[in-house]
Amino acid sequence: MADFLLVHGSCHGAWCWRDLIPALEAAGHTARAIDLPGHGPSTVLPSACTLDSCRDTVLDASTPDTVILGHSWGGYPISAAAETEPNAMRGLIYLCAYIPIGGRSMVEMRKAAPRQPVLEAINRSSDGASYTIDPEQAPGLFYHDCPDAAVRYAIPRLCAQAIAPQTAPLPLSARFDSVPKHYIRCRNDRTIPPEYQQEMTKDWPSQRVHVMDSSHSPFFANPNGLAALVSRIAQEI
């Protein structure tokens, strides 16, 4: 059995793993979710959030036996954690997430995608420190195949996302390369284009890339299927 640490994406929080945690626990695993700085009950202002503080939050919650799963933007702080302390985790799972290229920021990675479906839904704060997602557009971007009850649960919980962590470049080295990694591509993703997810993993061994017929939020759309898949992945890490 595995110990999973779940790391949310932009504008989300530990709340988004509501359905996946019990599905993993029913399979005999332990599973924990964290809020990155500026999310959940955190009192850290967006202007004070950094990629380093996000990284440290991940490391503080991890153990050498932990499989860390990062969703979307969450791919960056989990990668930063692996670069800093590769022995502090058992392996990484990227869930329709950005895989850093050394020296690039997440924003640079997003701009390299062939399409930018999320841009029209972004509302930048007046001070330029954060952004939010238009709640009218969020269901179509994030949750188009999720149960209505899950969508009603999620929309009011979406929060501001600090910009500075996402504009910070992430240098990578052999330390990052040494950590076992798997990727779950979501075939029906309307946030990070599926073809870009495929591009980011084009040089990966095929057995480390998995596909779900899901939106950007398989933790709501198909939590049992996601739990079964990450359980199988954990056996290979």
Results as ranks from 00 to 15, higher is better:
Ser130Thr: 06
Lys181Val: 09
His182Arg: 09
Glu136Gly: 15
His182Leu: 13
Ser178Cys: 13
Ala160Thr: 07
Gln166Thr: 10
Glu136Met: 15
Ile163Asn: 05
Phe142Arg: 05
Asp127His: 01
Ile184Thr: 06
Asn123Trp: 08
Gly128Asn: 00
Arg157Ile: 05
Ser125Ile: 00
Asp145Arg: 11
Leu170Glu: 05
His144Ile: 00
Asp148Thr: 11
Ala154Met: 08
His144Phe: 01
Gly140Gln: 12
Ala150His: 06
Ala129Cys: 09
Tyr131His: 15
Ser130His: 01
Glu136Trp: 14
Ser130Lys: 04
Ala149Trp: 07
Leu172Trp: 02
Arg185Leu: 09
Gly140Asn: 10
Ser126Gly: 04
Pro171Trp: 05
Asp177Gln: 12
Leu141Ala: 07
Pro156Cys: 05
Asp134Ser: 13
Pro135Leu: 12
Ala149Lys: 13
Thr132Ala: 14
His144Ala: 07
Pro139Met: 03
Pro171Glu: 11
Asp127Tyr: 02
Ala154Cys: 06
Ser173Ile: 11
Asp134His: 11
Pro156Ser: 12
Phe176Leu: 03
Leu158Pro: 00
Ile184Phe: 01
Asp134Cys: 08
Asp127Gly: 02
Asp177Leu: 11
Val151Glu: 01
Ala129Arg: 04
Pro135His: 04
Thr167Cys: 09
Pro156Asn: 04
Gln137Leu: 14
Ile155Ala: 02
Leu172Ile: 03
Ala121Asp: 08
Ala160Met: 09
Leu172Lys: 07
Asp148Cys: 06
Ile184Ser: 04
Thr167Met: 11
Tyr143Asp: 12
Arg124Thr: 11
Ile133Ala: 10
Ser173Arg: 08
Leu172Arg: 05
Cys159Asn: 11
Pro180Gln: 12
Gly128Ala: 00
Arg185Val: 11
Ala150Met: 02
Ala150Val: 08
Leu141Gln: 06
Ala164Gly: 11
His144Asp: 08
